[in-house]
Nucleic acid binder design. Sequence first.
DNA 1: GTAAAAAGTTTCCACCGGAAACATTGGGGC
DNA 2: GCCCCAATGTTTCCGGTGGAAACTTTTTAC
Lengths: 191, 191
Amino acid sequence: MASYHHGNLSEALLDAAEVQIEAVGLEALSIRACAKAIGVTHSAAFRHYKNKRHLLTALATRSAHRMADAIQLSAEKTAQNKGFLETGLSYIDFAIQNPQQFRSVFREELIDADDGSYRLATARLAAQLGDGREQRSQPEPISEAALLAWSTVHGLACLSIDGSLESDISKADRMQFFRKTLQRLGPVLER
Amino acid sequence: MASYHHGNLSEALLDAAEVQIEAVGLEALSIRACAKAIGVTHSAAFRHYKNKRHLLTALATRSAHRMADAIQLSAEKTAQNKGFLETGLSYIDFAIQNPQQFRSVFREELIDADDGSYRLATARLAAQLGDGREQRSQPEPISEAALLAWSTVHGLACLSIDGSLESDISKADRMQFFRKTLQRLGPVLER
DNA sequence: GTAAAAAGTTTCCACCGGAAACATTGGGGC
DNA sequence: GCCCCAATGTTTCCGGTGGAAACTTTTTAC
């Protein structure tokens, strides 16, 4: 106990960062505060992440997988053909439940977008939106229908957590309204 | 010349901020750098904006109006009934041409979202998307169709400037692809 | 058992946003 | 025409931040 070496500081830093961003916002994340929460000097963090951007990239990667997991889970509970609607709604739901984590995934100016595992995680996420069956191999470009679905869902998520809809739709019936909105998309999502 | 009093420092600060964010990114904006670019002490800025958040709010407000102007201009050049397509495309185009300005408009964690003139500016923007004819009076909630249109366009803009589409669509034929994508929406945008 | 590498700490630096106290200026009332 | 005051800048200070460098402690490999 209370050993000099923490044991799993890199993971602990991510945990602390996750807590901190949901508390104070993604932009206000501070390495020093994360380190202090763990009981370690801020310099220790730089042994595991060469700079703040690398920490945020790791956080974004983990968040992307969390999100993909949540979506996958909801997809498995749903009939194959009604997949898109539930997938889209759980995409939005994750964003609303974990706004800062969601932001961390797409805030490329804060992260190293070329990072391999980050790209992998976001590719997985994107593939989930491109309707259930479409298992894209790498070089094949996204289809029109998939882009339409993804951008609509992504737009709803962004507008929701950015507060731009607050004067229009109350939080209570937001998801219901979103469901109806997404249902409209159905007819034009044919391949 | 070279007078002690600048004359129009608040505007000059916004101009400097606009230049700086497109150069170094919205999150990296520094009041000190803006002030230095103008040739003024950083403290002078606080005479005009009580803190950084207020500066960013003013910047967001101005950017929102710039964007609304650009959209309005393109709408006026277009046939009345084909309005949505061109409106949406110019929304996206503004975002791609001025990514940091676009971000500043919607980055509510950085600005004072309750500010009156900011709300006015974003309301104007939102109204433009809700198809040409629909002149929303304040308390009337957004329609399903309008939300669908707005969120799709907004999603495309966000995904574009965040680089999430880079591996899928080259920049060159991006707008063309977006046009085709948005055209699909037409049939389901009936009121 | 010891040498090297891994993982912490301490100390330093430049920069940042912001507060406070002071200096300069220009405009309005007399 | 003068003077006072409010507006606008400046200087100086503070605590917090990311990051580099040098040092210490621990773990691991041989």
